[in-house]
């Protein structure tokens, strides 16, 4: 007799994860190599500022919103911050996730308690909902939104929701929900290199390029 939930979990932990990992890691490396080898056209004009330092600075300075912008687009900024920090905390401070990192890289750190993880997860999902809502209601943002954006929103929300359901046993067989959680994460990993999710890695390159181009021209970021 088999337990379909258990079999699915074992598939998600085994071949499913392997496939997702190969596409995820392979895809990211592929795209990074592509981006860096293609590089940019050489700027033959004499430099008016230090492009390298400005590039480095921009990587970090772009994380701080410009004055007035928080007031101008509060949902985007506050929701964006809550989502990114929340996703980071839920991913890196939940004990089972740390166990995975420990197994893969041999490093670990203290886990956060259930109250923190669960409230952060709930907040993160709420932030995602607010961000999605603003895409529907704001005419400018709506016209800028593509299918890719909605897909990315859905793919980021699903692991959070299924993880919450699995841990709290809200519905469904807990083993099945754990398997579903892993599968949603694997879907996110597979889509990662080929969608805007890639920004989680490529933001470093694009910000550096922008900063260094402007910096070379003498603009301070």
């Amino acid at each position: 007799m088999n337990n379909p939930a258990f079999d699915l979990l074992m598939w998600a932990r085994g071949p499913g994860f392997d496939i997702a990992l190969v596409i995820f890691v392979g895809g990211i490396v592929l795209r990074l190599f592509e981006i860096s080898i293609l590089g940019r056209k050489r700027d033959l004009a004499p430099a008016k500022g230090n492009g390298f330092l400005q590039g480095l600075k921009t990587i970090f300075s772009r994380s701080v919103p410009r004055e007035g912008l928080v007031k101008f687009a509060p949902v985007t900024y506050i929701g964006g911050y809550v989502f990114h920090i929340g996703f980071f905390v839920a991913f890196f401070f939940f004990a089972p996730h740390i166990a995975l990192i420990d197994d893969a890289f041999g490093i670990s750190w203290p886990a956060a308690g259930r109250v923190i993880i669960e409230s952060v997860t709930a907040l993160t999902v709420l932030a995602l909902l607010a961000l999605t809502y603003s895409r529907f209601t704001d005419p400018v943002r709506k016209s800028l939104t593509t299918f890719d954006d909605y897909l990315v929103l859905l793919l980021s929300a699903l692991p959070l929701i299924t993880g919450y359901v699995a841990v709290n046993k809200l519905f469904g067989d807990p083993t099945m929900m754990l398997a579903v959680h892993l599968l949603t994460v694997e879907a996110l990993m597979i889509a990662f290199p080929f969608t805007k999710l890639m920004h989680a890695v490529s933001f470093v390159l694009s910000r550096y390029y922008n900063g260094s181009i402007q910096g070379r021209k003498g603009a301070e970021s």
Binding site: M10, R13, G14, P15, F17, D18, L21, V22, I23, F24, V25, G26, G27, I28, V29, L30, F33, P96, H97, A99, L100, D103, A104
Partner: peptide
């Protein structure tokens, strides 16, 4: 929460392949 397979080898292969 840890994958059951020999995923580290797969990851390394993916880096080289990518």
């Amino acid at each position: 929460s840890v994958p059951s397979g020999d995923y580290r080898k797969m990851g390394l292969a993916a880096i080289v392949g990518g």
